[in-house]
Design a protein around this nucleic acid. Sequence first.
DNA 1: TAAGATGGACAATCAAGTTGTCTATATAGT
DNA 2: ACTATATAGACAACTTGATTGTCCATCTTA
Lengths: 156, 156
Amino acid sequence: MSSDSPGFELPLRLLMGFRAIIDELHAELARQGHPDLRPMHGFVMQAVGQSGTTAVELGRTLGVSKQAAGKTIETLERLGYVERSVDPYDTRRKIVRLTPRGIDSLIRSARIFDDIRNRWAARLGKDRLRAMESDLRQVTPPDFFRLDIPGWFGTL
Amino acid sequence: MSSDSPGFELPLRLLMGFRAIIDELHAELARQGHPDLRPMHGFVMQAVGQSGTTAVELGRTLGVSKQAAGKTIETLERLGYVERSVDPYDTRRKIVRLTPRGIDSLIRSARIFDDIRNRWAARLGKDRLRAMESDLRQVTPPDFFRLDIPGWFGTL
DNA sequence: TAAGATGGACAATCAAGTTGTCTATATAGT
DNA sequence: ACTATATAGACAACTTGATTGTCCATCTTA
């Protein structure tokens, strides 16, 4: 079948799709009062979660060194999205928690992601979009929380 | 419709799909004698093209500064994938061209991309894969050569 | 022919990773 | 209980790949 597109188009389209969504998300987040958030920050705050975490733990979750995780935490702390406090049960640990501003950004992100997905569904049809998601699930690992995104992008 | 996946899954799946292909490509390229190529290098060499280019031109194509483009060229030159020569018609310009090794890596990449695509087609069905590509084309810009990948990833 | 634009080199800076070292604190083994 | 080991976090130096700014040589144009 010669009408197939060349193999290199598929990864580029996947990347462009990812990028289109992320760019739109952050344009909208900026409009909604979060102009300083970088795409990475969303991943990091998701990894921090409602229950909090530590630099070492965060580094393991994200697949980067504890020092790198610490630096990202510092940035997010400076921007007001997380805060640190000493763990009373283990005074070595400093627990990182989302601030109300951090939680707000996650809530807004979730809503914006859903809006974008609805727009894709309107464009492609609900069934086609669901088929795409289902097919992507088949060719990618099942869990999407161990992505080690930062480390991977660093060496791109 | 409550069976829809949350909106944030789609971009992650797109990214994981991209990453799965690129990881596989470079694992195979390493096996075939190109262990030092980074994912970025493929984009850059595609942008260099058969007819050659210059640092300034390459920077414009990739959406980065001419200095950044120059550094990447240096790296690829050191690895033996491109070579530079002075333009006899304009002695300011240095023309960057692919070496035979550079061309070899592009040929192998194209073959590997096709192999990976065939494996996806076997897994998902040819029609489903074509539907995915077609749908992605609908929600992404038509031209995939002005991606400014390096600049974009840098600020991720 | 003088003025301006362009290509490339060099330097300093930045951001986000890395490894290595150090201190303080917890935990486990004898 | 004491000692040895492991862990959390801070600090420093380095790497990579981007940035901006400056500079010189060369080409183009008025």
